[in-house]
C-alpha cells in the first residue's frame, strides 16, 4: 500500500468512527444487562431457596408435602415393605436405572420433588401399578423409590439437594 497523505487521513477518520460505533454498541449492551438480569430470581426469592424440615412427627407410612422454591416436595417415611420393594428389582429393566441407595440418603426417608418429569403435573401418592406414585395427567407410574416404571415420563422423580442436619432434621437447597 502506498503511503500517501490522503490514505492516512482516511484511515484516521475511519478509526474515530469505528471507535464511536464500538463505544455506542458497548453502551447499549451494558444497558441491556440490568434489563435482562431483573428477571432472574430476586434477593427475597433466593433467601427462601433453602428450607429446614423437622421429620420428628413423621410415622412410618406417612408422607408430608412441603413447598420448596414454589414446587411441592414429597417427604415419605417409607415402610419396611416399601424399602424392600424398592431394592428388590432388576435395575437393567428400568427406563432410568438408579439404585435406591442413590435416591435416599437415609433409606427410611425418601425426599423428592413432586413434579412429574413428563409435563409437570403433581403425581398422586401410593397409587399406580407399583405402589409408589401415579401421575393422573398422562398415566406415568412411579415405584416406591420414585423411579419411572411405566408411562410417558422420561426420568425418575427428581431428588433435590439436601443434607441431614441431625437424625430427623433436613435442610433442603
Amino acid at each position: 500500500m502506498k503511503n500517501n497523505p490522503t490514505d492516512e487521513k482516511k484511515t484516521r477518520r475511519d478509526f474515530i468512527h469505528i471507535t464511536s460505533g464500538v463505544t455506542v454498541a458497548t453502551g447499549i449492551a451494558a444497558a441491556g444487562w440490568p434489563l435482562i438480569d431483573q428477571m432472574n430470581p430476586s434477593a427475597d426469592v433466593l433467601a427462601l431457596a433453602t428450607v429446614e424440615v423437622d421429620l420428628e412427627p413423621l410415622q412410618p407410612g406417612q408422607s408430608i408435602s412441603v413447598l420448596w422454591r414454589g414446587k411441592p416436595l414429597f417427604i415419605r417415611y417409607r415402610t419396611e415393605e416399601e424399602i424392600s420393594k424398592a431394592n428388590d428389582i432388576d435395575l437393567n429393566a428400568l427406563k432410568d436405572p438408579q439404585p435406591d441407595e442413590d435416591r435416599a440418603k437415609n433409606s427410611k426417608y425418601l425426599v423428592m420433588i413432586g413434579v412429574c418429569t413428563h409435563l409437570g403435573c403433581v403425581p398422586l401418592g401410593q397409587e399406580g401399578e407399583y405402589g409408589g406414585w401415579f401421575c393422573p395427567c398422562h398415566g406415568s407410574h412411579y415405584d416406591t423409590s420414585g423411579r419411572i416404571r411405566k408411562g410417558p415420563a422420561p426420568t425418575n422423580l427428581e431428588i433435590p439437594p439436601y443434607v441431614f442436619l441431625d437424625e430427623t432434621t433436613i435442610k433442603i437447597g
Binding site: W33, P34, L35, Q38, V45
Partner: peptide, 8 residues
Amino acid sequence: DVNYGWLI
C-alpha cells in the same frame, strides 16, 4: 430485592 431494580 429485584436485581438492578433500584437502577431501573
